[in-house]
Nucleic acid binder design. Structure first.
Lengths: 144, 144
DNA sequence: CTGTCTGCAAACCATTTGCAATCGT
DNA sequence: ACGATTGCAAATGGTTTGCAGACAG
């Protein structure tokens, strides 16, 4: 998980301009374990910085992913969610409410997985492990 | 991997009508390891059955997923791809050309993964393991 | 100052939807 | 015959784009 101050100085070092919009998105994502959508990030960012457009949120998210500060998750409903935790871990994805929960993996299993990285591909940049099902909260509600 | 004839009889047993469109989509997906998009499936299906609309392809795919004959994969570019191989296996996803390649996992690792299925969620219906990177073919081409 | 970054609003495009006509059973 | 299924064409909605103005360095 990045630290806001050091993330800012790293971005500055790479030549990026430090705009209030970028800082606000960084602050929203910092320590965020909710796997928010772009729209949710936009809503929260506007509370810190009223003049932020959704287009800018997408711009900043794309930049943060490119620079390795966040990872992007595709959900079954076709939307994307953003995760500042870039360590190898798994997700449980609720197919009803589309929320995502973190699932910790053991060191052993993580290393075991890397063993299967296909060698004929140049480089594996990311690994995604997802369990799909219905979360506890949705399971308790009637199945309409 | 389903067999076309037994898939048809299973669907018939469940009360589904056996339309030429459904048979054609089943035939396109049978033994298909290309992880095609809906549009690719539509194109190939039309070669077997000229009167198939893209809406019907989506209908049939949704039904086949619901009945457990195929699994749906989300790609980084936001489109969906369809896989008739419902056994637990991993994928290598090329972030440049968006093609998907199968990666076999050992029995041991598969079982190890199941160990991490979160117990406080009612039921895990599917597990997805994906490696992201650049495939050999794309890596050989110049990086524009 | 200068070129990057932003906000706006339109464009994009995979997927979904509504409905009348068709066709499997 | 009857209701499930289809094709059509429009709608949907998350994401992207083009561009003029704003602003960080």
């Amino acid at each position: 998980m990045f630290d806001v101050k050091s993330a800012i100085s790293m971005l500055k070092g790479k030549g990026y301009r430090i705009t209030p919009q970028r800082v606000a998105v960084l602050r929203v994502l910092h320590n965020n374990t909710e796997h928010p959508t772009a729209e949710e990030i936009h809503r929260k960012t506007m509370k810190l910085q009223s003049n932020v457009s959704i287009a800018t949120v997408y711009n900043v998210l794309e930049m943060l992913e490119k620079e390795g500060f966040i990872v992007v998750l595709q959900t079954p409903d076709g939307t994307r969610r953003y995760d500042p935790n870039t360590e190898l871990h798994a997700h449980f994805v609720c197919e009803r409410c589309n929320r995502i929960f973190d699932v910790e993996l053991s060191q052993n299993l993580s290393k075991g997985l890397l063993f299967f990285v296909p060698e004929d591909s140049s480089e594996v940049k990311q690994i995604n492990i997802s369990f799909f099902g219905i979360c506890k909260r949705c399971a308790q509600q009637q199945t309409s």
